[in-house]
């Protein structure tokens, strides 16, 4: 058996630095990552990276920052298993490996000039934040912007400071709901779907962008279709086990589609006939 060092391997990682770690909730931590030489990740909102901790493994993590943020990028990781537990043990100054960005992100060029309704539930806000912040940084390129946010309890809300900013902005319509309120909560209580009927929109010029737990999509899409938004203008981002990011390993396959290459962002018209998608 001969062994060669392989140049241009798709598995090559960029040795990157964690420059900031913040504990957001009991389960979620925020990481700011700097690529070698302060290079830009050059991603589209909605894309993901493969994060390596050598000796532990690799996992797909969605990028949470907008490409308008230069010099570093951000991600939020929930501690759910072997890899994420190891990631949570890392501190500022520690190194990780990065591959990517991978996949098809949100089609920002197509969204330009249109009204946008963002629907984020639970951890869905993490990838969606990359697009929301992109839109806010390029606000005049877009029409009306509405953000609908749902989380389990007020304590589970991520990016509280940024959310507070969004609520203050005059050029963003923001509403929020929680599954379970506490005595201090003054907002809505209930499912995220309950926020949709209250949104006024012009369906033919509106794109709806949904990210949340798998069970949520069907219900939210049904509400948006009631609002007459065309199927191709409803965008979702799907979560699968994207192991290689290269459309090969098979773990993220959704019927004939590879989530890591064909997605993770899909328009509803492309996946409504794909039984394993939603």
């Amino acid at each position: 058996m001969k062994k060669l060092l392989l140049k241009d391997s798709k598995y090559e990682i960029k040795k990157s630095k964690i420059i900031k770690v913040t504990t957001l909730t009991d389960l979620e931590k925020f990481f700011e990552i700097e690529l070698p030489g302060g290079d830009s990740l050059d991603h589209d909102p909605g894309q993901f990276v493969e994060v390596s901790i050598l000796g532990v493994g690799e996992a797909p993590i969605s990028v949470s920052s907008s490409p308008t943020k230069l010099g570093s990028f951000e991600m939020v990781v929930r501690k759910v298993g072997r890899f994420t537990s190891a990631l949570h043990q890392l501190k500022e100054g520690d190194e990780i490996g990065i591959r990517g960005p991978f996949g098809k992100g949100f089609p920002v060029r197509i969204l330009e000039g249109n009204d946008l309704v963002f629907v984020a539930a639970g951890l869905g806000i993490v990838p969606l934040r990359s697009l929301i912040n992109f839109v806010i940084d390029n606000r005049r390129d877009f029409g009306k912007v509405s953000i609908l946010l749902g989380c389990r309890t007020p304590q589970n809300m991520l990016f509280g400071d940024e959310v507070a900013e969004w609520t203050k902005r005059l050029d963003v319509n923001f509403s929020c709901t929680v599954d379970r309120a506490d005595p201090d909560w003054k907002g809505n209580v209930g499912m995220i779907t309950s926020l949709i009927p209250g949104v006024t929109l012009e369906p033919e010029r509106t794109f709806a962008v949904i990210v949340g737990p798998p069970v949520m999509y069907k219900f939210v899409i049904a509400e948006l279709l009631k609002k007459q938004i065309p199927e191709r203008q409803i965008l979702v981002s799907l979560e699968r086990n994207m192991k290689c990011g290269l459309g090969k390993c098979g773990h993220c396959q959704i019927n004939g589609l590879y989530c890591c290459q064909d997605g993770p962002v899909f328009s509803y018209d492309k996946i409504k006939g794909v039984p394993e998608a939603l």
């Binding site: 062994k3 060669l4 060092l5 392989l6 090559e12 990682i13 990157s16 390596s52 050598l54």
Partner: peptide, 8 residues
Amino acid sequence: EDMEPVVE
């Protein structure tokens, strides 16, 4: 985190 891709 130094890694070298190889082919065998």
